[in-house]
Design a protein around this nucleic acid. Structure first.
Lengths: 117, 117
DNA sequence: TCATTTGTGTAGTATATAGTACACATAAAA
DNA sequence: TTTTATGTGTACTATATACTACACAAATGA
């Protein structure tokens, strides 16, 4: 259970080895935040940034946005909107799937993809 | 698409007809907020309250907490926690179920209840 | 009728969220 | 060696969130 900060730093440094454009400062510039801020985020001296900034970071660093948001304890607003439209149904579904093993979730996903309703 | 304010007010006034303990002031007292605040919430003069207050309101007024939270654009932290543990899986699942009809969701729920994995 | 209860207007507050701005020492590039 | 780029320390700041406190007029109850 590694925090989001070290996760971002490690990943960025990995990319940096192949491409000098992944310095903290250049990433911060592309994402549109202050370098000092990104520094503090990576070292967890400050709490993780907001949804928009995390999504831009994910894009720039080629990471999964949902995963990054989750590591920051957040959920993408588009997912929130999906739930808010049918809150009782999705609440029931999620609480039921809470302890289901991954493969069971994947099976449900596939079942739906095959659209057999 | 009626707001959360009128929804609360209407429901409370209905209960009030049977039981005088459902006056705005007495509900506010039980829930632990200022009457003036509840008044403003019901008339949507102020944005809806936080999760804890909404849950207490739901309890007191015998309403569904998930529905109330959804009307306020929020999602219960316990649901958020479920998603945050396996963000990619649940994100995929939710986006796939986004446009599925209610009966299809209910079928998935039932399938899982019957626990056939 | 007098006391109590009710809903509401006005004014303010505490805490969290999501950052900025700039200076500085060190490392790398020209 | 001079310039440029890099990461970080310190000090703020703006906006949103989630309320409280108190006074008041009108309705209700005893």
């Amino acid at each position: 259970m590694n925090g989001i900060g070290p996760y971002l730093r490690t990943h960025r440094e990995t990319l940096k080895q192949q491409d000098r454009r992944y310095s903290l400062r250049q990433v911060a510039a592309r994402v549109g935040i202050e370098p000092a801020y990104l520094s503090k985020i990576e070292r967890e001296e400050m709490p993780p940034p907001g949804e928009q900034t995390l999504k831009k970071l994910a894009r720039d660093l080629e990471l999964d946005a949902d995963l990054l948001l989750a590591m920051a304890g957040k959920i993408s607003t588009d997912l929130q909107a999906i739930i808010c439209k049918r809150p009782q149904l999705f609440a029931q579904l999620l609480r039921q799937l809470k302890d289901a093993p991954d493969h069971a979730l994947l099976r449900v996903v596939r079942e739906i993809t095959d659209g057999d309703w």
